[in-house]
Design a protein around this nucleic acid. Structure first.
Lengths: 233, 233
DNA sequence: TCATTAATGTCGAAT
DNA sequence: ATTCGACGTTAATGA
Protein backbone atom coordinates (compact mmCIF):
# COMPACT_ATOMS: atom_id res chain seq x y z
CA UNK A 1 0.00 0.00 0.00
CA UNK A 2 1.28 3.38 -1.05
CA UNK A 3 -0.01 6.41 0.81
CA UNK A 4 0.64 9.85 -0.63
CA UNK A 5 -0.46 13.14 0.85
CA UNK A 6 -0.34 15.79 -1.83
CA UNK A 7 -1.61 19.02 -3.17
CA UNK A 8 -3.31 17.56 -6.22
CA UNK A 9 -5.76 18.01 -9.06
CA UNK A 10 -7.80 15.10 -10.41
CA UNK A 11 -9.62 14.36 -13.64
CA UNK A 12 -11.83 11.36 -14.26
CA UNK A 13 -13.47 10.47 -17.52
CA UNK A 14 -15.46 7.32 -18.10
CA UNK A 15 -18.97 6.66 -16.91
CA UNK A 16 -19.14 10.41 -16.42
CA UNK A 17 -16.68 13.28 -16.32
CA UNK A 18 -15.46 14.82 -13.08
CA UNK A 19 -12.96 17.45 -12.13
CA UNK A 20 -11.42 17.93 -8.71
CA UNK A 21 -9.72 21.30 -8.23
CA UNK A 22 -6.31 21.63 -6.68
CA UNK A 23 -6.29 20.90 -2.94
CA UNK A 24 -4.57 18.74 -0.35
CA UNK A 25 -5.79 15.15 -0.23
CA UNK A 26 -4.72 11.63 0.68
CA UNK A 27 -4.08 9.26 -2.20
CA UNK A 28 -3.92 5.52 -1.63
CA UNK A 29 -2.65 2.95 -4.08
CA UNK A 30 -3.37 -0.57 -2.89
CA UNK A 31 -1.56 -3.82 -3.61
CA UNK A 32 -4.17 -4.77 -6.23
CA UNK A 33 -3.58 -1.34 -7.90
CA UNK A 34 -6.84 0.12 -6.62
CA UNK A 35 -6.44 3.90 -6.50
CA UNK A 36 -8.37 6.07 -4.05
CA UNK A 37 -8.43 9.85 -3.69
CA UNK A 38 -9.71 10.69 -0.25
CA UNK A 39 -10.99 13.88 1.34
CA UNK A 40 -11.10 14.48 5.08
CA UNK A 41 -14.75 13.61 5.47
CA UNK A 42 -17.25 10.88 4.71
CA UNK A 43 -17.12 7.25 3.79
CA UNK A 44 -16.70 7.51 0.08
CA UNK A 45 -13.58 8.48 -1.84
CA UNK A 46 -13.79 11.56 -4.07
CA UNK A 47 -12.40 9.59 -6.99
CA UNK A 48 -11.21 6.07 -7.37
CA UNK A 49 -10.44 3.30 -9.80
CA UNK A 50 -10.37 -0.44 -9.22
CA UNK A 51 -8.14 -1.98 -11.88
CA UNK A 52 -8.14 -5.39 -13.48
CA UNK A 53 -5.47 -7.23 -15.42
CA UNK A 54 -6.06 -5.39 -18.68
CA UNK A 55 -5.82 -2.00 -17.00
CA UNK A 56 -2.70 0.13 -16.72
CA UNK A 57 -1.33 2.17 -13.87
CA UNK A 58 1.54 4.63 -14.15
CA UNK A 59 2.98 6.18 -11.04
CA UNK A 60 5.33 9.06 -11.73
CA UNK A 61 6.78 11.68 -9.35
CA UNK A 62 4.24 14.30 -10.39
CA UNK A 63 1.47 12.24 -11.91
CA UNK A 64 -0.56 9.07 -11.40
CA UNK A 65 -2.57 7.79 -14.35
CA UNK A 66 -4.88 4.78 -14.22
CA UNK A 67 -6.61 3.51 -17.34
CA UNK A 68 -9.28 0.82 -17.54
CA UNK A 69 -11.08 0.39 -20.82
CA UNK A 70 -12.66 3.72 -21.66
CA UNK A 71 -12.17 5.01 -18.16
CA UNK A 72 -9.25 7.13 -17.09
CA UNK A 73 -8.22 8.63 -13.78
CA UNK A 74 -5.48 11.22 -13.83
CA UNK A 75 -4.02 12.63 -10.64
CA UNK A 76 -1.69 15.60 -10.99
CA UNK A 77 0.62 15.85 -7.98
CA UNK A 78 1.51 19.52 -7.64
CA UNK A 79 3.27 19.06 -4.33
CA UNK A 80 3.87 15.84 -2.45
CA UNK A 81 3.80 16.40 1.30
CA UNK A 82 4.25 12.83 2.44
CA UNK A 83 4.80 9.46 0.89
CA UNK A 84 4.74 6.11 2.69
CA UNK A 85 4.99 2.69 1.18
CA UNK A 86 4.23 -0.34 3.31
CA UNK A 87 3.43 -4.02 3.21
CA UNK A 88 0.14 -5.07 4.78
CA UNK A 89 0.32 -8.77 4.00
CA UNK A 90 -2.57 -11.18 3.71
CA UNK A 91 -6.08 -10.27 4.81
CA UNK A 92 -7.81 -13.10 6.71
CA UNK A 93 -11.16 -11.67 5.67
CA UNK A 94 -14.25 -10.32 7.34
CA UNK A 95 -16.60 -12.70 9.11
CA UNK A 96 -20.21 -11.54 8.98
CA UNK A 97 -23.36 -12.63 10.74
CA UNK A 98 -26.86 -11.29 10.44
CA UNK A 99 -27.26 -10.75 6.74
CA UNK A 100 -30.35 -11.42 4.69
CA UNK A 101 -29.10 -14.92 3.99
CA UNK A 102 -29.20 -15.77 7.66
CA UNK A 103 -32.75 -14.52 7.99
CA UNK A 104 -33.82 -16.39 4.89
CA UNK A 105 -32.20 -19.62 6.04
CA UNK A 106 -33.65 -19.34 9.51
CA UNK A 107 -37.10 -18.73 8.09
CA UNK A 108 -36.70 -21.60 5.64
CA UNK A 109 -35.96 -23.85 8.58
CA UNK A 110 -38.98 -22.62 10.53
CA UNK A 111 -41.59 -21.22 8.13
CA UNK A 112 -44.20 -21.54 10.88
CA UNK A 113 -42.48 -18.55 12.48
CA UNK A 114 -44.02 -16.49 9.68
CA UNK A 115 -47.52 -17.92 9.83
CA UNK A 116 -48.83 -20.83 11.89
CA UNK A 117 -48.86 -24.03 9.88
CA UNK A 118 -46.93 -22.54 6.99
CA UNK A 119 -44.72 -25.07 5.22
CA UNK A 120 -41.87 -24.51 2.80
CA UNK A 121 -42.09 -25.72 -0.78
CA UNK A 122 -38.83 -24.24 -1.99
CA UNK A 123 -36.25 -21.63 -1.06
CA UNK A 124 -34.99 -19.44 -3.92
CA UNK A 125 -37.72 -20.69 -6.24
CA UNK A 126 -36.70 -19.59 -9.74
CA UNK A 127 -39.06 -17.51 -11.87
CA UNK A 128 -38.52 -15.68 -15.12
CA UNK A 129 -38.04 -12.42 -13.24
CA UNK A 130 -35.81 -13.71 -10.47
CA UNK A 131 -35.88 -16.09 -7.51
CA UNK A 132 -38.63 -16.06 -4.89
CA UNK A 133 -37.09 -16.07 -1.42
CA UNK A 134 -39.53 -18.60 0.03
CA UNK A 135 -42.36 -20.33 -1.78
CA UNK A 136 -44.72 -21.87 0.77
CA UNK A 137 -48.19 -23.25 1.34
CA UNK A 138 -50.67 -22.66 4.14
CA UNK A 139 -52.51 -25.39 6.02
CA UNK A 140 -55.32 -25.19 3.48
CA UNK A 141 -52.85 -25.40 0.60
CA UNK A 142 -52.89 -21.81 -0.54
CA UNK A 143 -49.61 -20.80 -2.17
CA UNK A 144 -47.68 -18.11 -0.30
CA UNK A 145 -44.88 -16.00 -1.73
CA UNK A 146 -42.53 -14.73 0.96
CA UNK A 147 -40.05 -11.94 0.37
CA UNK A 148 -37.47 -11.47 3.11
CA UNK A 149 -35.82 -8.15 3.88
CA UNK A 150 -33.17 -7.87 6.54
CA UNK A 151 -33.54 -4.17 7.11
CA UNK A 152 -36.56 -1.88 7.20
CA UNK A 153 -38.68 -2.84 4.22
CA UNK A 154 -39.60 -0.12 1.73
CA UNK A 155 -42.23 0.19 -0.95
CA UNK A 156 -40.01 -1.53 -3.51
CA UNK A 157 -40.23 -4.68 -1.42
CA UNK A 158 -44.01 -4.64 -1.72
CA UNK A 159 -43.74 -4.30 -5.45
CA UNK A 160 -41.12 -7.00 -5.64
CA UNK A 161 -43.30 -9.59 -3.93
CA UNK A 162 -46.32 -8.54 -6.03
CA UNK A 163 -44.34 -9.11 -9.20
CA UNK A 164 -43.61 -12.64 -8.12
CA UNK A 165 -47.29 -13.33 -7.44
CA UNK A 166 -48.16 -12.11 -10.91
CA UNK A 167 -45.58 -14.24 -12.61
CA UNK A 168 -46.58 -17.24 -10.50
CA UNK A 169 -50.19 -16.82 -11.62
CA UNK A 170 -49.12 -18.33 -14.94
CA UNK A 171 -48.57 -21.60 -13.10
CA UNK A 172 -51.89 -23.14 -12.10
CA UNK A 173 -50.26 -24.85 -9.12
CA UNK A 174 -49.45 -21.49 -7.60
CA UNK A 175 -52.26 -19.28 -8.85
CA UNK A 176 -53.72 -16.69 -6.48
CA UNK A 177 -50.73 -16.85 -4.20
CA UNK A 178 -50.72 -14.72 -1.06
CA UNK A 179 -47.83 -12.24 -0.96
CA UNK A 180 -46.05 -11.91 2.38
CA UNK A 181 -43.29 -9.51 3.34
CA UNK A 182 -41.06 -10.44 6.27
CA UNK A 183 -38.67 -7.85 7.70
CA UNK A 184 -37.09 -6.74 10.94
CA UNK A 185 -38.97 -3.47 10.63
CA UNK A 186 -41.27 -1.63 8.25
CA UNK A 187 -41.48 1.97 7.19
CA UNK A 188 -44.93 3.40 7.84
CA UNK A 189 -45.61 4.03 4.18
CA UNK A 190 -44.62 0.49 3.37
CA UNK A 191 -47.26 -0.90 5.70
CA UNK A 192 -49.84 1.43 4.22
CA UNK A 193 -48.99 0.51 0.67
CA UNK A 194 -48.84 -3.18 1.50
CA UNK A 195 -52.34 -2.89 2.93
CA UNK A 196 -53.66 -1.55 -0.34
CA UNK A 197 -52.04 -4.33 -2.25
CA UNK A 198 -53.17 -7.04 0.11
CA UNK A 199 -49.61 -7.87 1.09
CA UNK A 200 -49.17 -9.32 4.53
CA UNK A 201 -46.44 -7.71 6.64
CA UNK A 202 -44.80 -9.88 9.27
CA UNK A 203 -42.25 -8.33 11.58
CA UNK A 204 -39.63 -10.59 13.06
CA UNK A 205 -36.14 -9.72 14.18
CA UNK A 206 -33.06 -11.87 13.80
CA UNK A 207 -32.85 -12.15 17.56
CA UNK A 208 -36.40 -13.43 17.75
CA UNK A 209 -35.63 -15.90 15.00
CA UNK A 210 -32.56 -17.15 16.81
CA UNK A 211 -34.60 -17.54 19.96
CA UNK A 212 -37.27 -19.45 18.07
CA UNK A 213 -40.00 -16.87 18.55
CA UNK A 214 -42.78 -16.29 16.09
CA UNK A 215 -43.22 -13.22 13.96
CA UNK A 216 -45.71 -10.54 14.82
CA UNK A 217 -48.35 -9.84 12.22
CA UNK A 218 -48.00 -6.18 11.53
CA UNK A 219 -50.87 -5.93 9.18
CA UNK A 220 -53.81 -8.28 8.68
CA UNK A 221 -54.25 -9.85 5.30
CA UNK A 222 -56.71 -8.24 3.00
CA UNK A 223 -57.58 -9.71 -0.39
CA UNK A 224 -54.73 -9.52 -2.85
CA UNK A 225 -55.50 -6.52 -5.02
CA UNK A 226 -53.98 -7.56 -8.29
CA UNK A 227 -50.65 -6.76 -9.81
CA UNK A 228 -50.16 -3.06 -9.73
CA UNK A 229 -53.29 -1.36 -8.60
CA UNK A 230 -52.30 1.87 -7.01
CA UNK A 231 -55.04 4.08 -5.77
CA UNK A 232 -54.49 7.23 -3.84
CA UNK A 233 -56.56 8.13 -0.83
CA UNK B 1 -6.71 13.09 9.10
CA UNK B 2 -5.07 10.45 11.23
CA UNK B 3 -3.51 7.49 9.47
CA UNK B 4 -2.50 4.48 11.52
CA UNK B 5 -0.94 1.30 10.22
CA UNK B 6 -1.34 -1.43 12.77
CA UNK B 7 -1.64 -5.06 13.55
CA UNK B 8 -5.26 -4.97 14.63
CA UNK B 9 -8.44 -6.84 15.40
CA UNK B 10 -11.86 -5.33 14.76
CA UNK B 11 -15.37 -5.94 16.04
CA UNK B 12 -18.47 -4.29 14.71
CA UNK B 13 -21.94 -4.71 16.10
CA UNK B 14 -24.96 -2.79 14.91
CA UNK B 15 -26.83 -3.39 11.70
CA UNK B 16 -25.07 -6.74 11.71
CA UNK B 17 -22.19 -8.34 13.55
CA UNK B 18 -18.73 -8.70 12.07
CA UNK B 19 -15.37 -9.88 13.25
CA UNK B 20 -12.04 -9.11 11.66
CA UNK B 21 -9.19 -11.34 12.84
CA UNK B 22 -5.82 -9.93 13.79
CA UNK B 23 -3.83 -8.68 10.80
CA UNK B 24 -2.01 -5.63 9.50
CA UNK B 25 -4.27 -2.91 8.11
CA UNK B 26 -4.49 0.83 7.51
CA UNK B 27 -6.84 2.75 9.76
CA UNK B 28 -7.99 6.23 8.82
CA UNK B 29 -9.73 8.70 11.12
CA UNK B 30 -10.98 11.71 9.21
CA UNK B 31 -11.58 15.27 10.38
CA UNK B 32 -15.33 14.59 10.67
CA UNK B 33 -14.51 11.52 12.83
CA UNK B 34 -15.28 9.04 10.07
CA UNK B 35 -13.34 5.85 10.81
CA UNK B 36 -12.21 3.48 8.06
CA UNK B 37 -10.42 0.14 8.35
CA UNK B 38 -8.80 -0.62 5.04
CA UNK B 39 -7.31 -3.74 3.52
CA UNK B 40 -4.81 -3.72 0.68
CA UNK B 41 -7.38 -4.40 -2.02
CA UNK B 42 -10.66 -3.13 -3.38
CA UNK B 43 -12.72 0.01 -3.18
CA UNK B 44 -14.60 -0.64 0.01
CA UNK B 45 -13.28 -0.51 3.56
CA UNK B 46 -13.47 -3.70 5.63
CA UNK B 47 -15.17 -1.85 8.45
CA UNK B 48 -16.17 1.75 8.93
CA UNK B 49 -18.31 4.16 10.85
CA UNK B 50 -19.49 7.62 9.86
CA UNK B 51 -20.25 9.53 13.04
CA UNK B 52 -22.69 12.33 13.77
CA UNK B 53 -22.82 14.81 16.64
CA UNK B 54 -24.39 12.45 19.11
CA UNK B 55 -21.79 9.77 18.45
CA UNK B 56 -18.65 9.25 20.46
CA UNK B 57 -15.12 8.44 19.41
CA UNK B 58 -12.33 7.41 21.74
CA UNK B 59 -8.81 7.11 20.46
CA UNK B 60 -6.43 5.43 22.85
CA UNK B 61 -2.93 4.07 22.30
CA UNK B 62 -4.13 0.49 21.99
CA UNK B 63 -7.78 0.92 21.13
CA UNK B 64 -10.17 2.96 19.02
CA UNK B 65 -13.85 2.80 19.88
CA UNK B 66 -16.59 4.54 17.94
CA UNK B 67 -20.19 4.45 19.11
CA UNK B 68 -23.23 5.70 17.23
CA UNK B 69 -26.61 4.80 18.65
CA UNK B 70 -26.73 1.04 18.87
CA UNK B 71 -23.76 0.63 16.58
CA UNK B 72 -20.25 0.14 17.87
CA UNK B 73 -16.93 -0.25 16.14
CA UNK B 74 -14.02 -1.42 18.24
CA UNK B 75 -10.50 -1.55 16.87
CA UNK B 76 -7.91 -3.26 19.03
CA UNK B 77 -4.44 -2.06 18.14
CA UNK B 78 -2.07 -4.89 18.99
CA UNK B 79 0.92 -3.22 17.42
CA UNK B 80 1.10 0.22 15.85
CA UNK B 81 3.58 0.25 12.97
CA UNK B 82 3.06 3.83 11.82
CA UNK B 83 1.04 6.83 12.83
CA UNK B 84 0.69 10.05 10.84
CA UNK B 85 -1.51 12.98 11.66
CA UNK B 86 -2.01 15.68 9.06
CA UNK B 87 -4.16 18.63 8.09
CA UNK B 88 -5.84 18.41 4.71
CA UNK B 89 -7.76 21.69 4.83
CA UNK B 90 -10.87 22.56 2.90
CA UNK B 91 -12.17 20.44 0.04
CA UNK B 92 -13.32 22.53 -2.94
CA UNK B 93 -15.60 19.69 -3.98
CA UNK B 94 -16.07 17.46 -6.97
CA UNK B 95 -17.48 18.89 -10.19
CA UNK B 96 -19.51 16.36 -12.19
CA UNK B 97 -20.89 16.28 -15.71
CA UNK B 98 -22.83 13.59 -17.50
CA UNK B 99 -25.28 12.53 -14.85
CA UNK B 100 -28.97 11.82 -15.18
CA UNK B 101 -29.59 15.56 -15.02
CA UNK B 102 -27.68 16.07 -18.25
CA UNK B 103 -29.69 13.38 -20.01
CA UNK B 104 -32.92 14.81 -18.72
CA UNK B 105 -32.01 18.33 -19.78
CA UNK B 106 -30.89 17.20 -23.22
CA UNK B 107 -34.10 15.28 -23.71
CA UNK B 108 -36.16 18.21 -22.47
CA UNK B 109 -34.51 20.34 -25.14
CA UNK B 110 -35.22 17.79 -27.85
CA UNK B 111 -38.15 15.57 -26.86
CA UNK B 112 -38.57 14.55 -30.49
CA UNK B 113 -35.44 12.46 -29.95
CA UNK B 114 -37.64 10.17 -27.86
CA UNK B 115 -40.57 9.93 -30.23
CA UNK B 116 -41.20 11.81 -33.47
CA UNK B 117 -43.34 14.86 -32.90
CA UNK B 118 -43.21 14.58 -29.12
CA UNK B 119 -43.36 17.95 -27.39
CA UNK B 120 -42.52 18.85 -23.81
CA UNK B 121 -45.20 20.13 -21.45
CA UNK B 122 -43.05 20.27 -18.34
CA UNK B 123 -39.81 18.95 -16.92
CA UNK B 124 -39.90 17.74 -13.30
CA UNK B 125 -43.70 17.89 -13.26
CA UNK B 126 -44.69 17.62 -9.60
CA UNK B 127 -47.06 14.89 -8.45
CA UNK B 128 -47.99 13.73 -4.98
CA UNK B 129 -45.60 10.83 -5.27
CA UNK B 130 -42.66 12.72 -6.74
CA UNK B 131 -41.69 14.62 -9.86
CA UNK B 132 -42.19 13.22 -13.35
CA UNK B 133 -38.97 13.61 -15.32
CA UNK B 134 -40.67 14.74 -18.52
CA UNK B 135 -44.37 15.22 -19.09
CA UNK B 136 -45.07 15.41 -22.83
CA UNK B 137 -47.72 15.13 -25.50
CA UNK B 138 -47.71 13.32 -28.80
CA UNK B 139 -48.76 14.81 -32.13
CA UNK B 140 -52.33 13.64 -31.49
CA UNK B 141 -52.26 15.13 -28.00
CA UNK B 142 -51.91 11.97 -25.98
CA UNK B 143 -50.15 12.61 -22.68
CA UNK B 144 -46.79 10.86 -22.31
CA UNK B 145 -44.94 10.26 -19.06
CA UNK B 146 -41.19 9.89 -19.58
CA UNK B 147 -38.86 8.48 -16.96
CA UNK B 148 -35.17 8.94 -17.69
CA UNK B 149 -32.45 6.59 -16.45
CA UNK B 150 -28.80 7.28 -17.15
CA UNK B 151 -27.66 3.73 -16.57
CA UNK B 152 -29.20 0.38 -17.43
CA UNK B 153 -32.83 0.62 -16.45
CA UNK B 154 -34.18 -2.03 -14.09
CA UNK B 155 -37.63 -3.29 -13.27
CA UNK B 156 -38.10 -0.63 -10.58
CA UNK B 157 -37.97 2.01 -13.31
CA UNK B 158 -40.94 0.36 -15.03
CA UNK B 159 -42.90 0.47 -11.83
CA UNK B 160 -41.87 4.02 -11.14
CA UNK B 161 -43.21 5.30 -14.45
CA UNK B 162 -46.40 3.24 -14.05
CA UNK B 163 -47.01 4.82 -10.66
CA UNK B 164 -46.84 8.24 -12.25
CA UNK B 165 -49.37 7.26 -14.91
CA UNK B 166 -51.75 6.08 -12.22
CA UNK B 167 -51.47 9.25 -10.21
CA UNK B 168 -51.84 11.35 -13.36
CA UNK B 169 -55.05 9.55 -14.23
CA UNK B 170 -56.78 11.61 -11.55
CA UNK B 171 -56.18 14.65 -13.73
CA UNK B 172 -58.48 14.55 -16.74
CA UNK B 173 -56.00 16.54 -18.81
CA UNK B 174 -53.48 13.74 -18.51
CA UNK B 175 -55.65 10.66 -18.27
CA UNK B 176 -54.55 7.50 -20.08
CA UNK B 177 -51.00 8.74 -20.40
CA UNK B 178 -48.48 6.57 -22.21
CA UNK B 179 -45.54 5.56 -20.01
CA UNK B 180 -42.12 5.74 -21.63
CA UNK B 181 -38.79 4.68 -20.24
CA UNK B 182 -35.65 6.23 -21.71
CA UNK B 183 -32.25 4.81 -20.80
CA UNK B 184 -28.81 4.23 -22.22
CA UNK B 185 -29.43 0.52 -21.90
CA UNK B 186 -32.01 -1.92 -20.61
CA UNK B 187 -31.71 -5.13 -18.69
CA UNK B 188 -33.39 -8.03 -20.49
CA UNK B 189 -35.91 -8.59 -17.73
CA UNK B 190 -36.76 -4.92 -17.75
CA UNK B 191 -37.75 -5.00 -21.42
CA UNK B 192 -39.82 -8.11 -20.84
CA UNK B 193 -41.61 -6.62 -17.87
CA UNK B 194 -42.09 -3.26 -19.58
CA UNK B 195 -43.75 -5.04 -22.47
CA UNK B 196 -46.30 -6.58 -20.13
CA UNK B 197 -47.04 -3.25 -18.57
CA UNK B 198 -47.36 -1.45 -21.88
CA UNK B 199 -44.34 0.69 -21.14
CA UNK B 200 -42.38 1.87 -24.12
CA UNK B 201 -38.60 1.41 -23.89
CA UNK B 202 -36.47 3.86 -25.85
CA UNK B 203 -32.72 3.46 -25.91
CA UNK B 204 -30.69 6.64 -26.31
CA UNK B 205 -27.08 7.11 -25.28
CA UNK B 206 -25.63 10.34 -24.02
CA UNK B 207 -23.34 10.40 -27.02
CA UNK B 208 -26.29 10.14 -29.39
CA UNK B 209 -28.02 12.92 -27.53
CA UNK B 210 -24.96 15.13 -27.72
CA UNK B 211 -24.72 14.40 -31.42
CA UNK B 212 -28.38 15.18 -31.89
CA UNK B 213 -29.32 11.77 -33.17
CA UNK B 214 -32.76 10.36 -32.59
CA UNK B 215 -33.42 7.52 -30.23
CA UNK B 216 -33.77 4.04 -31.46
CA UNK B 217 -37.08 2.52 -30.56
CA UNK B 218 -36.17 -0.69 -28.85
CA UNK B 219 -39.61 -1.92 -28.23
CA UNK B 220 -42.72 -1.17 -30.29
CA UNK B 221 -45.59 0.54 -28.53
CA UNK B 222 -48.30 -1.77 -27.37
CA UNK B 223 -51.46 -0.48 -25.77
CA UNK B 224 -50.91 0.63 -22.22
CA UNK B 225 -52.58 -2.03 -20.15
CA UNK B 226 -53.69 0.10 -17.26
CA UNK B 227 -51.87 0.82 -14.06
CA UNK B 228 -50.41 -2.51 -13.24
CA UNK B 229 -52.74 -4.66 -15.20
CA UNK B 230 -51.04 -6.64 -17.81
CA UNK B 231 -52.05 -9.54 -19.86
CA UNK B 232 -50.11 -12.70 -20.12
CA UNK B 233 -49.38 -14.83 -23.12
C1' DT C 1 -18.78 -13.30 -19.04
C1' DC C 2 -23.20 -11.62 -18.15
C1' DA C 3 -27.14 -10.71 -15.38
C1' DT C 4 -29.22 -10.04 -11.02
C1' DT C 5 -29.61 -8.79 -6.12
C1' DA C 6 -27.95 -7.47 -1.48
C1' DA C 7 -25.51 -3.88 1.04
C1' DT C 8 -23.54 -1.82 7.92
C1' DG C 9 -24.80 0.25 0.88
C1' DT C 10 -23.60 6.01 0.86
C1' DC C 11 -25.20 10.47 -0.19
C1' DG C 12 -28.03 14.36 -0.93
C1' DA C 13 -32.49 16.58 -1.35
C1' DA C 14 -37.12 17.31 -0.22
C1' DT C 15 -40.91 16.77 2.96
C1' DA D 1 -36.51 12.95 11.48
C1' DT D 2 -37.93 10.40 7.53
C1' DT D 3 -38.50 9.20 2.87
C1' DC D 4 -36.92 8.77 -1.65
C1' DG D 5 -34.09 8.07 -5.61
C1' DA D 6 -29.36 8.34 -7.83
C1' DC D 7 -24.86 6.41 -7.66
C1' DG D 8 -18.66 6.20 -11.84
C1' DT D 9 -22.97 2.67 -6.73
C1' DT D 10 -19.68 -1.88 -5.16
C1' DA D 11 -19.53 -6.68 -4.29
C1' DA D 12 -21.03 -11.36 -4.54
C1' DT D 13 -23.49 -15.08 -6.66
C1' DG D 14 -25.47 -18.03 -10.09
C1' DA D 15 -26.20 -19.11 -14.92
Amino acid sequence: MLIIVADCEVNYTGRLTTYLPRARRAIIVKADRTVLVMADRGHQPLNWMVLDKRSSLHIEPDRIVATKGKEQLEIMLHQVLARHELELGAEPGLAKAGEELEMQQSLAARPEAILPGLRLIQREYATSIGPIDLLCRTLDDQAVVVEVKRTAAGIEAVEQVCRYVTVLSEDSRFAHAQPVLVAQSFRPQTVQYAQRRGVLCVQITLEQLRQGAEGELRYPAGPYCGPGLFELG
